[in-house]
Design a binder for these strands. Structure first.
Lengths: 146, 146
DNA sequence: TTGATTTTGCAAATTATTTGCAATATCTGC
DNA sequence: GCAGATATTGCAAATAATTTGCAAAATCAA
């Protein structure tokens, strides 16, 4: 991770938010596990029965508004959350349709193809962010499932 | 649209499904309106009070399983649905953060950058499909909001 | 440490979507 | 076109993820 946990403490303090047990714990999980997690999974990973699931949701919502965390939707019904690009290098996901495993890919075709500029010129739309998820079969499942 | 509505009737029949009022009506809306719609919006557009919202959901789920319709998730809470690529040329969406307007873009950087092959070579993951949504400010909102 | 302010736990509310089941529409063979 | 077999629908109730109200507890600032 690019910054230590105290960075987040300072960031929250600077924005007028308290540094609480729930927020700290959620961030510790997110900086430790390198893949997008569901609120439920984060809650379980806290291993602190004092912290309620709704506090996890509240923390995630706050972090999202502060661009500390970004939401990832893979069409599973529940959203996933991971550290935002500023803290984790821009990347995308390879989602295996067979086993559900999620890998990261650093390659970004939106940048590579200069798509933002192309769109700006052709349509006047100013792209600020994008979401790209790739679905298919991971190496392992490809061998088995075909 | 690339095929008439009777194409879908034949397709459903061929798969052993009935051609019903609800299914026909939902497809008429989807082939008419050129942007991804929520189940609720589709239901309203039917203008047939006999058709229940749950039938719209059931029809959408069936169409999705038959690759007639594809789900679009823009982080709004509710999913949107549009005709699948086979019936509508592959495209992506420009979603305006300010006014919510959704435009299509034909340009696909995943194809342009040869990302699928790159990933296959480097990781062994076989990409079958992808989801790309672009967020930002449309030409109109850019003038106003900045 | 203390009082003022935020945040939390808990339970209940919301919202999108799904489901059970009896009633109805669609389809198939005549 | 009709009857019976089968598939689908409407409706109401169930789910599942997420949000919220509120009193109690934690955090902050002096």
């Amino acid at each position: 991770m690019r910054y230590g946990i105290t960075h987040f403490k300072d960031l929250l303090g600077g924005e007028g938010y308290s540094w609480t047990r729930a927020r700290s714990a959620v961030l510790t999980v997110l900086t430790t596990v390198p893949r997008p997690l569901r609120a439920e999974e984060i809650h379980r990973a806290l291993r602190d029965p004092r912290i309620n699931l709704s506090s996890v949701y509240r923390a995630l919502r706050l972090f999202e508004s502060l661009d500390v965390v970004q939401r990832v939707e893979l069409g599973e019904g529940a959203a996933r959350y991971e550290l935002a690009d500023d803290y984790r290098d821009h990347h995308h996901h390879l989602v295996c349709d067979a086993c559900g495993r999620i890998e990261d890919v650093a390659a970004c075709p939106v940048e590579a193809a200069g798509l933002t500029r192309h769109i700006r010129k052709r349509t006047g739309f100013a792209v600020r962010s994008h979401v790209l998820e790739l679905f298919g079969l991971c190496r392992t499942c490809r061998r088995v499932t075909g």
